[in-house]
Design a binder for these strands. Structure first.
Length: 948
RNA sequence: GGGCGUAUAGCUCAGUGGUAGAGCACUUCGUUGACAUCGAAGGGGUCGGGAGUUCAACUCUCUCUACGCCCA
């Protein structure tokens, strides 16, 4: 015995994984084979494997192993993402533990420390992916900040800039005051929180009054602190209450600033008083209103610094007691918001919110209200719209071909229901802010220098390197060379250095400085499908493996990553990044909640692997992955698939004991015995189902096909039915059966391998130890090719056999006969063909069906059980006292069921509309079914009659 | 407000225009040398409500209800 009594997943998983990797089999040399390519969503270098990774990577591994087994040049690109913000946060947190700050170091020193951290502690997830059994091409593992990707990122940035698809713009961005960087729209999560709506009086200047006689306009706001940078009050142009004061001025009470009342449709007459204060520098809507009112972005007032503390506005009107306060209460300390409210209240300008309860009126400072509030997805603090210069990608232009690619079918989105989301987002896409005020990331290849004509203004130069920058500088600044007197142009790392240099005595000195910002991490991961293949070099890999065949990702990164890959891929490769895009759902907690660390309901996939084995976890993921639905975690189900692995293990042990082992042929062995021809047919059918399911990306259907074949067909029936053959006298039959059984087990092992790579590889070799060994490992074996058709005759015979044995067992249970009891059967209405069948199957009927004899002689007088299968009735005489009533009840129940079906069919066929309008094959089938059911009813009735 | 999705057996989920399926759970029985991480047999659903199309609807259409997600 080479197979242990117990299947121990842990014992084989590490061994096989190391073997595969060491022998380079994740990417076998198959230069002539058809390529098949998947790129892995690069996990964060800071990350660890969570259950979502387990799902995503299991699905990819199933596909890539399947394609590898089919002989393709299968490449699964793997690598990690530098994860700008997340990684910088990790390293800064570590520094904080040592009472250090990022700014205690130079930028170079800090980045060096991050690299050190990356080398030492980063990438834990890659080891964890190995535990899951993922067959990625680790030998060519990539990183979004490796040299090749750097080169790609620089080229993309420069090319997009030169094509006008990247530009620098001053507009409001989503600013994270905790992380002190801009973030993109997608990184903002809007959450409803309980807040307040304050109502204030804004005094009208110059003695103006409303038609109603009031000398103020009531305005309402959820953000009183922005009052310090108010630049207008807007009213709806058709709002009669305010028509007369449009163009008149407000004297803002705290700052004393004077600004106009403007007409703008943004003001909703139904909301509050209908008048709204406008802070163009700190609100996205107000920004637009401000622009429409003729305020240039550069002139918009800013009242906050990068940490959202109050700073002086350009007009110097913010009272000094506000300077330095946080925007609102932070850590229990009141901020600008609280002070604004207090001052206005003291001035009598706060309009209280009156609540009436039980006839008693109470005055509140503000109206309680639910406010949709933007939070940064990383920093977790309220996002501040902030007016800054940032780099933007013209996403709208890049989106057009990506929209077309899906519309034309060049990219197939699976499931199709996601297409609409794709179109909807792409068609309403906003400029993508790609600059980040971080140190860890791809530094933007842009330099600034003074404008020749207006030295206060800056001029932008974009180039992949200093070498390429120099000619640009020379060309531009040579215009300033007067009388052949060259100016000395120097490149600096910071603006400060450049300014110092220029302020030195020699007025001909010109300094330029590099943009300090880095690019959004997604900017580089968007290049993954071609950057990892060598682009911008025209490598062989690039030619062979682009476009990728498939991308599998969670729908949660559809916009972040998938959409951006499509945009960049088409822009730079002139072709889609992948032909198909498969989107799967989330893995949820058992109660259906989203898993999150804060809820404490995360399930650790490594814990599941420890408990049930990687194969079981993988099979669970596949079996649960139906299209368009999230997966609820269910440990019992994982356990069930562990049991499935054990079942297979034990089946293999049975084979081993019976001298059944590795087959020598790819095609099905020649077989004479119906049971062997039958199981071969079952393999053929299962293979077809499995291939179709995998082609359709129906992972659940694929997993179920192999599961049910293995357990229900192979283990429950085939192995039982061949026992008498293996132990019988017919050496030829036993030999044939060994051949077939070995072959079928091999087919199971191969078909199951994409789902359960470890146990199958182990069995692949173990089953061959006494049978000539294997020429290659299973991971690079050949996908089944039985080269035979389904044998209808054998199928019919074994199907009959199974039904007869099952019915016998059922009858025994219902008649309280011990299951082991051997019985004799007497056949009524059997023909010669049935006689032959019975003769052939007698060993199985005896051993498995416990029918010692089956004769065509009439049954002796006396009590008997009767079983109707097809055209014949099997009479089983019962020794001793039997419960006639029980047998009667049993037959009556069967008869009623049969009659009910016959009646239903009869009714349908009696409907002329059905016969005329239904499809002929439907009518035909109904007629045939009716005949069967009627015949069955007759036989059951006859059996009942015989009981007396 | 716009879009998408889901409602099928106690639970978790498949499913097809022609008489409802799986796994788990449940009931009964079982120590015949692969397997009790197992085997045999069984119970259990008016397929969310309503309307329509059709010879026929769990399946297609509309609508309502509940829940979830995304966008604004």
């Amino acid at each position: 015995m080479t197979l242990d009594k117990n299947f121990d997943p842990a014992g084989i998983e590490t061994r096989w994984y190391e073997h595969w990797e060491k022998t380079g089999q994740f990417r076998p040399e198959r230069g002539d084979a058809e390529p098949y390519t998947i790129v892995n969503p690069p996990p964060n270098v800071t990350g660890s494997l969570h259950i979502g990774h387990a799902l995503d990577n299991t699905l990819q591994d199933i596909i890539i192993r399947h394609e590898r087994l089919k002989g393709k040049d299968a490449l699964w690109v793997v690598g990690m993402d530098h994860a700008g913000i997340a990684t910088q946060m990790v390293v800064e947190r570590q520094m904080a533990e040592r009472q250090q700050k990022r700014t205690d170091f130079t930028r170079e020193e800090f980045v060096e420390k991050v690299w050190e951290w990356k080398e030492e502690s980063g990438g834990a997830i890659t080891k964890q992916l190995r535990r899951l059994g993922c067959s990625m091409d680790w030998a060519n593992e990539r990183f979004t900040m490796d040299d090749g990707m750097n080169e790609a990122v620089l080229k993309v940035f420069v090319d997009l800039y030169n094509d006008g698809l990247i530009y620098r713009d001053k507009r409001l961005v989503n600013w994270d005051p905790k992380l002190k960087t801009a973030i993109s729209d997608l990184e903002v999560e809007t959450t409803d929180i309980r807040g307040s709506f304050w109502h204030f009086k804004y005094p009208l200047a110059d003695g103006v009054t409303l038609d109603s006689g009031e000398d103020y306009i009531a305005i309402a706001t959820t953000r009183p602190e922005t009052m310090l940078a108010d630049m207008a009050v807007a009213v709806h142009p058709s709002d009669e209450r305010y028509k007369s004061v449009i163009g008149k001025e407000i004297a803002q009470p705290i700052t004393g600033r004077r600004f106009r009342i403007v007409a703008d449709e943004h003001a909703d007459p139904e909301l509050g008083s209908g008048a709204v204060k406008i802070t163009p520098g700190h609100d996205f809507n107000d920004f637009e209103v401000g622009k429409r009112a003729g305020i240039a972005p550069a002139d918009m007032l800013n009242m906050l610094d990068g940490e959202a503390n109050v700073c002086q506005t350009a007009d110097g009107l913010v009272p000094k007691e506000f300077i330095g306060l946080h925007r609102f209460r932070l850590d229990g300390v009141d901020g600008a918001r609280e002070l604004v409210i207090k001052q206005l209240k003291d001035l009598g300008l706060l309009i209280p919110h009156v609540v009436e309860k039980d006839g008693e009126k109470t005055e509140l400072d503000a109206e309680p209200r639910t406010i949709a509030t933007p939070f940064g997805d990383r920093g977790g603090v309220v996002i501040e719209p902030w007016l800054t210069d940032q780099w933007y990608v013209d996403a709208e232009t890049l989106a057009q071909p990506a929209i077309k690619a899906v519309r034309d079918g060049d990219i197939e989105i699976v499931p199709k229901s996601w297409e609409k989301t794709w179109f909807n987002w792409m068609e309403n896409i906003q400029p993508w802010c790609v600059s980040r005020q971080l140190w860890w990331g791809h530094r933007i290849p842009a330099w600034f220098g003074p404008d020749i004509d207006n030295p206060e203004e800056t001029r932008i130069f974009v180039a992949e390197s200093i070498e390429e920058l120099t000619p640009q500088l020379l060309e531009y600044y040579s215009k300033a060379w007067k009388n052949g007197e060259a100016m000395a142009v120097e490149v600096f790392d910071t603006e400060a250095e450049a300014r110092t240099y220029m302020s030195e005595t020699d007025v001909r000195k010109l300094g330029v400085w590099r943009d300090p910002d880095v690019l959004d991490t997604w900017f580089s991961s968007a290049l993954w499908p071609f950057g990892t293949l060598g682009w911008p070099e025209e490598t062989d890999d690039l030619k062979r493996h682009y476009p990728n065949d498939l991308l599998i990702s969670g729908f949660d990164i559809l916009f972040f990553w998938d959409a951006r890959m499509a945009m960049q891929g088409i822009q730079f490769m002139k072709d889609v990044p992948w032909k198909r895009l498969y989107l799967h759902g989330l893995v949820r907690a058992p109660d259906g909640q989203k898993m999150s660390k804060s809820k404490g309901n995360v399930v650790d996939p490594l814990g599941l692997i420890d408990e049930y084995g990687a194969d079981a976890l993988r099979f669970f993921m596949a079996a649960m992955e139906s299209q368009g639905r999230d997966i609820k975690m269910d440990d019992k189900r994982v356990e069930g698939y562990r049991n499935f692995a054990t079942k297979l293990w034990n089946a293999a042990r049975f084979c081993e004991v019976n001298d059944i082992g590795a087959s020598q042929t790819l095609s099905a062995p020649e077989a004479r015995l119906p049971v062997n021809r039958w199981i071969i047919s079952e393999v053929v059918e299962t293979l077809a189902t499995l291939d179709k399911a995998l082609t359709d990306l129906r992972f659940d259907a694929a997993a179920n096909a192999i599961y049910h074949f293995t357990w229900d067909r192979f283990c429950d029936w085939y192995l039982e039915l061949i026992k008498p053959v293996l132990q019988g006298d017919d050496a030829t039959a036993a030999d044939e059966t060994r051949q077939v059984a070995g072959w079928v087990l091999d087919q199971i092992i191969v078909m199951l391998h994409p789902f359960m790579p470890f146990i199958t590889e182990e069995l692949w070799h173990k089953m061959a130890e006494e049978h000539g060994g294997r020429n290659y490992d299973l991971i690079v074996a050949k996908w089944p090719a039985p080269k035979v058709d389904v044998d209808a005759e054998a199928k019919a015979e074994v199907d009959w056999l199974i039904r007869l044995i099952s019915a016998t067992r059922t009858a025994k249970v219902e008649l309280n006969i011990p299951p082991g009891t051997k019985m004799a059967a007497h056949v009524r209405d059997g023909d010669d063909a049935l006689k032959d069948r019975i003769a052939r199957q007698m060993p199985a009927l005896d051993r498995v069906g416990r029918l010692e004899t089956v004769s065509f002689e009439p049954a002796p007088e006396g009590a008997s059980a009767q079983i109707v299968i097809d055209e014949a009735t099997y009479v089983l005489p019962l020794a001793g006292a039997i419960d006639i009533d029980a047998e009667k009840a049993r037959l009556t129940k069967a008869l009623e069921a049969s009659q009910k079906e016959a009646k239903s069919l009869n009714g349908r066929l009696g409907n002329p509309n059905f016969v005329e309008k239904a499809k002929p094959e439907a009518v035909e089938k109904a007629r045939a079914d009716l005949a069967d059911k009627e015949a069955e009813s007759e036989r059951l009735q006859a059996a009942l009659d015989r009981l007396g």
